[in-house]
Design a binder for these strands. Sequence first.
DNA 1: TCTGGGGTCCTAGGACCC
DNA 2: TCTGGGGTCCTAGGACCC
Length: 426
Amino acid sequence: MAVIALVDCNNFYASCEKLFDPTIADRPIVVLSNNDGCVVARSAEAKALGVPMGAPWFQLQELAKAHDILALSSNYALYADMSSRVVHVLASFTPDMEIYSIDESFLSLEGLVGTPSEIGRQIRERVARWVGLPVCVGIASTKTLAKLANHAAKKDLAGLDGVCDFGALSSSALDELFEQIPVSEVWGVGRRLDERLAEMRISTVRQLRDASPAWIRERFSVVLERTVRELRGVPCLDLEDIAPAKQQIMASRSFGTPVFDLEQLSQAVASHTTRAAEKLRAQQCVAGAITVSIRSNPFKPWERQYNQGAVVPLPEPSADTRALINAALWGLSKIYRPGYAYKKAGVLLSGLEPVARRQESLLADRAREGRTAALMLAMDQINSRWGRGSLRPLATGFGGDWRMKRERLSPAWTTQWERVPLVQAR
DNA sequence: TCTGGGGTCCTAGGACCC
DNA sequence: TCTGGGGTCCTAGGACCC
């Protein structure tokens, strides 16, 4: 039987911020989304104060003032770096792992020395010692159960001290535990499914696990059926140790302040296209089409609303930032309407295929393609060495209201030499 | 004043083909 | 007067995840 561990960092973004600033160790802190919009992470203290996940920060001013809550802009350079450090530590246990998100990884514990619980405790200790971040470990025979075990460990539902191995519990103990956990905690059950399940008197994990898979498939979907089977210990989801190439690549942002004119929208779209094209080349692919979209602010329904996108097929699949920008700006000119307060723009690359397997056009100009590839490579290398955006297309412009607000940003402690903390020993 | 961004999978329905 | 069935591909929309 498979033994799968899910390792999940506790309050990841908030923990990263606290790690480098001891003065806020015990303070309630929250990390905000782009443009300092809503709460995307909360420290334990902030959770205890009842700060809800996803709440707009401006609605929390009174609570924040009353309890001295510190809000920080999200510092993705820091989180990405800390994430890769955690992954390195986990890889010291086994190469058989799936990096599921910035703060979660699945590990196969099969064949490792020690009981699963012991290994779980070692993982916790090693990450704490080598990186400084707290993690919880959930262990079970399927991914869905491992996620649930992790939840149990986090909530400390059985005096577990951060590690929960379902395999070490008796079936009656598991039954009891599953009766306590609401079905909405199950991986794959979101708000809508939770509502529909409630109508059918399924509100606990135990009730979902004990429902008939065939009946669930009939009433819901094959997806939820798999969830039920996984809850019963039948693996339906594989550990994906090799990350599959993305099928689409998106780059979009809300604006710092509303934008009205085509010029600024064009800069934003060119900028997002540049970023998307970098990601495209990083996975060695070309795109067949680019979708450009713009929209006004749906949170202001009293203002005139506009939300439009355009798919622009490329004459031939490409990863050339210049060709992609041309296509995107052409699409933008087709959908742009004056008179609206635009709040967001984005691009989506689709029809991706590996460069190596690309359909050669009969009209292909090999020499020109070679020069393009060399130019893109040089640009990517310069930006990798000197920082994103050091060399970029003129179309992305300078400054502009559309750029995002990050007024509460912590320093890049680990990714800029001048910000690396100094430690003195005596 | 102020409400994130980037993905996946599945299903239904239409176009088209033989 | 009578007008099939099965398959593929594509797209849009809905659900989910972190």
